[in-house]
Design a protein around this nucleic acid. Structure first.
Length: 621
RNA sequence: GCUGGUGUGGCGCAAUCCGGUAGCGCAACCGACUUGUAAUCGGUAGGUUCCCAGUUCGAAUCUGGGCACCAGCUCCA
């Protein structure tokens, strides 16, 4: 069941063209036909969640049930049965659900008063909590005033619910319970932990199979698996959770990413700075970060009467560079860039491979400008972000405009100016975006740029923030044309977000098969027999002289064995050379995932691959 | 941090429930084969069963603590 207080109610279009508000179905209409669209799926999953709760209640009559909405790809429902669910429990529940579906029980809707609802759910403390909080005046949940809607199926199960539902449980075609785990009641870590069961439901067995395939594919290309397997990086337990080491091949990919990024930043007018990894507490007191984030920072070191912290962000240090001398309006915008590694003590449970680490390298820059320059700077910056991400083969963008949170610093009027500047930049760039109310940082509103990867998963990458607070706190100024001292505006921005996270996303996006320009090994040369070793090495040297990364597999193995290894290693090109090639000075060229071409002149291949690398083409051919 | 789960040669797994000499495949190494496009054959070596305590005649297995990882919750400057 949905949290009745949800405000994101959506309308659902019935087959006859009339609209149904999911929060308030019209009188007499409690049924929606199953359709293969998002809203149809919501209704399906919502109904399946009811069946899940019904199954749990029938197996554990004393179970307390809380709520269970449809979610991306499925649904969940929270319960309290006094202990966690075991895998055997889940199997049993799934079987019970299948029975309920088989029985084709009709869903029916009714309306009762809040008092009647409280009586019906008198043994259900979680339901009662919701009922008590419903405001009869607001009429949010019920049909009107103090009335609230319930859904039953076959008099065997009743739930507080806004609906709508499928006509009957028999309409549920394909579902599967996927996992269970603890979840705090109402998402509050100070409240009891319930046991949540997750499931998925689809309009056809085929759609379910496709979904399960996607899950399997995601797990196959999981960077935590591919990374060590491809010898790119690992997390040594001796160093500690969330602290990765990059191996030569991973380090090379990282270097290529960073080199490209630096070259683009240089072209875009950035200047490169470097700042230390430790700072006295003084700096963080001025910036305010110590007040806000002390709990998620590495603890302080006391030395010679001073207190030092590993830096949790780079911004204040860049500000000190700005402040090192008087700045004129002629110098602005001043753009300071650094690959800055920062340390944050993320809680142990949130760490996740390279996507959530404790040692984070940001492609971090701070732009200081005059108020007049702000708008142009933002528009140019947003385009720069899209251009750089596009070069890495990420081409589907969406953005979020995150506005002032409940806890913030500064003047609301400044926040409004900054937010509006960001909004206009989004409109200029023409990126689809939605507003995330209250999701901004404590000191600034921001734009978050999301990309979609090859499996259609969304990742948040870049962030752009307009900050009036830190310049204030640090007393920054510039000398304006009229000779007066003015407060500069400050833009925080990162494109990759974190190099580690971006690395992981690329690894998963490409399933390890990096475009040639990023691939640590670009070519494998395979001599057919011992007598072709010299030719293979000559070919390799010619390519290397042109900057191509080549390995020669002259190991004592059969040709088939070495070809297989080259294929499974995801190297973009394999070159097989034997008598024919050596005599003619040619190659047999087989691109990763393509078909071989024999008799290719070495020079031709060389210019092809060099052009491919130069243009950063995504797939080899 | 919280709830639950997992931890066995480099990798993937078996033996764990019910305590009794830790096994298999791949990879590695050695040898033979000299190959025309996804796994040649034969042999060898490799283990503090995550760590520390405890129970026991005996612990990979049971108990306690720690570390690391996994799923989710909460958090994410």
């Amino acid at each position: 069941m949905n949290d009745p207080r949800r405000k994101d109610a959506v309308a659902y279009l019935l087959p006859d063209g009339s609209q149904v508000d999911l929060a308030r179905p019209p009188h007499g209409e409690s049924r929606v036909l199953l359709q293969k669209d998002d809203l149809g799926r919501q209704v399906l999953r919502h109904s399946t969640a009811h069946v899940l709760a019904q199954a749990v209640l029938s197996l554990w009559p004393n179970a307390k049930y809380a709520g269970g909405p449809p979610i991306q790809d499925g649904f969940y429902y929270d319960f309290d049965i006094g202990r966690p669910f075991t895998p055997e429990d889940i199997e049993m529940i799934e079987q019970k659900m299948a029975d309920i579906v088989q029985q084709d029980q009709p869903f029916t809707r009714e309306e009762v008063s809040l008092d009647q609802a409280a009586e019906i759910f008198k043994d259900q403390p979680y339901k009662l909590e919701w009922i008590r909080e419903m405001d009869p005046e607001a009429g949010e949940q019920g049909v009107s005033g103090d009335r609230v809607s319930l859904y039953r199926n076959a008099d065997k199960f009743v739930d507080l619910c806004r609906g709508p539902h499928l006509p009957s449980t028999g309409r549920i075609r394909s579902f599967k319970l996927t996992r269970s785990s603890g979840a705090y009641w109402r998402g509050d870590e100070n409240r009891p932990m319930l046991q949540r069961i997750y499931g998925t439901a689809w309009e056809s067995p085929k759609a379910l199979q496709e979904y399960l395939w996607r899950l399997e594919e995601a797990s196959k290309r999981d960077h935590r698996k591919l990374g060590p397997e491809m010898d790119l990086f690992h997390f040594p337990p001796e160093i500690g959770s969330g602290l990765a080491v990059f191996h030569p091949r991973g380090g090379l990919i990282r270097k290529i990413m960073e080199d490209y990024s630096k070259a683009e930043h240089e072209k875009a007018g950035y200047e490169f700075v470097w700042t230390p990894h430790l700072t006295k507490s003084t700096l963080l007191e001025i910036s305010g970060h110590l007040d806000w984030y002390k709990d998620s920072m590495y603890p302080p070191m006391e030395l010679e009467g001073a207190t030092y912290y590993p830096k949790p962000m780079n911004c204040p240090m860049h500000i000190l560079i700005y402040k090192s001398r008087t700045r004129s309006y002629r110098e602005l915008p001043l753009r300071l860039f650094e690959f800055g590694t920062v340390y944050r003590f993320e809680r142990s449970g949130v760490l996740h491979g390279l996507t959530r680490v404790r040692g984070i390298t940001q492609d971090d820059a701070h732009i200081f400008c005059t108020p007049d320059q702000l708008q142009d700077e933002l528009a140019g910056l947003l385009q720069f972000v899209l251009d750089v991400l596009t070069a890495f083969g990420l081409t589907e963008f969406e953005a979020e405009l995150a506005t002032r949170p409940e806890k913030y610093v500064g003047e609301p009027a400044d926040w409004d100016v900054a937010t509006e500047a960001l909004r206009r930049a989004l409109v200029t760039a023409g990126i689809p975006f939605k507003v995330a109310e209250g999701e901004g940082a404590f000191y600034a509103p921001k734009i978050d740029v999301h990309i979609k990867d090859a499996l259609n998963r969304r990742w948040q990458l870049s962030t752009l923030q307009v900050d009036f607070q830190l310049p204030n706190r640090f007393g920054m100024e510039y000398i304006a044309e009229d000779g007066t001292r003015r407060l500069p505006h400050m833009i925080h921005r990162a494109l990759f977000g974190s190099v580690e996270r971006f690395f992981a996303i690329l690894l998963e996006h490409y399933a390890g098969a990096f475009p040639t320009w990023l691939a640590p090994d670009q070519v494998t040369a395979i001599p057919i027999s011992d007598r072709h070793h010299p030719y293979a090495h000559r070919v390799a040297q010619t390519l290397r002289d042109a900057g191509i990364r080549v390995i020669v597999d002259d190991s004592d193995q059969t040709l088939g064995n070495r070809v297989r290894k080259a294929q499974t290693s995801r190297v973009p090109y394999q070159l097989v050379v034997g008598d024919k090639e050596e005599e003619a000075g040619t190659l047999s060229v087989k691109p990763r995932g393509g078909t071989e071409r024999r008799g290719v002149a070495l020079d031709d291949f060389l210019s092809e691959i060099c052009e491919e690398v130069r243009s950063r083409r995504i797939s080899p051919h």
